[in-house]
Simulated assay, not measured.
Amino acid sequence: MSTAADSTTTPVVETTRVPGPGKGRSIGELVASLSEQFSTLVRDELQLAQAQLAEKGKRLGAGAGFLGAAALVAFYGGGVLLAAAVLGLATVLPAWLSALIVGVVLMIVAGIAALLGKKKIDASKEFAPKPQEGFKEDVDAVKKGIQK
């Protein structure tokens, strides 16, 4: 009984042979390989540094957003407080008291948003990308590899 699997041929796959003992690569091949690997390493380290800087930018952006929200809420709170002052001076009715309470609540919200924004910006200062550490580790690894 013949199946379609029996009639197919296996594809030829080219493989790279690893030299046996005493048949190592030439110095030129080693230098070319080292150069290629080093350029790949440098490229990868630069991509890591770019990613770290992007993360820091995101954190700074979030802090700036909270500070912007705090400024906007404080602006409206100031407007309401002005309206409360006007109503309070114009008449001695409970309407000014309600406007004053709303204004104070808005100012509290603005203060909380400002504290959150400051906290986010301070947190972004603690995050310091250090791509030079990766380069140092890579150079040390290459040195150890050469010494062997």
Rank of each mutant, 00 (worst) to 15 (best):
M1Y: 09
S2L: 13
T3W: 06
T3H: 08
A5F: 10
D6W: 06
D6L: 08
T10F: 14
V13W: 09
V13K: 14
T15I: 09
T16L: 13
R17C: 02
V18C: 03
G20N: 09
G22W: 10
G22C: 06
G22L: 08
G22K: 06
K23A: 13
I27D: 12
G28Y: 07
G28F: 08
G28K: 04
E29Q: 13
L30E: 11
L30D: 09
L30H: 11
V31R: 15
A32S: 13
A32C: 08
A32T: 12
L34D: 06
S35Y: 09
T40Q: 15
V42I: 14
V42M: 11
D44H: 08
D44P: 01
A51N: 04
Q52V: 00
E55I: 01
G57L: 11
G57P: 02
L60C: 10
L60V: 14
G63D: 00
A64I: 07
G65I: 03
F66K: 08
F66M: 07
F66T: 00
F66Y: 15
L67C: 09
L67W: 05
L67N: 12
G68W: 10
G68R: 08
G68A: 15
F75N: 15
Y76F: 14
G77A: 15
G79L: 15
V80K: 03
L81N: 10
L81H: 07
L81V: 07
L82K: 04
A84G: 13
V86N: 03
G88R: 03
A90V: 10
T91Y: 07
T91M: 12
V92S: 08
L93C: 05
P94Q: 00
P94E: 04
P94Y: 09
A95L: 14
W96V: 01
W96C: 06
W96T: 02
L97S: 12
S98I: 12
L100Q: 11
I101G: 12
I101T: 15
V105Q: 00
L106Q: 02
M107K: 03
I108L: 12
A110L: 07
A110Y: 07
G111L: 02
I112D: 06
I112F: 14
A114S: 05
A114L: 07
A114V: 00
L115H: 06
L115D: 06
L115Q: 11
L116G: 02
L116R: 10
K119H: 11
K120G: 00
I121G: 00
D122Q: 13
A123C: 04
K125S: 07
E126N: 05
F127I: 03
P129I: 00
P129K: 00
K130P: 02
Q132F: 09
Q132H: 10
E133Y: 04
E137F: 15
D138G: 14
D138F: 08
D140I: 05
A141M: 10
A141D: 07
V142Y: 11
K144H: 10
I146V: 14
I146N: 02
Q147D: 15
K148F: 12
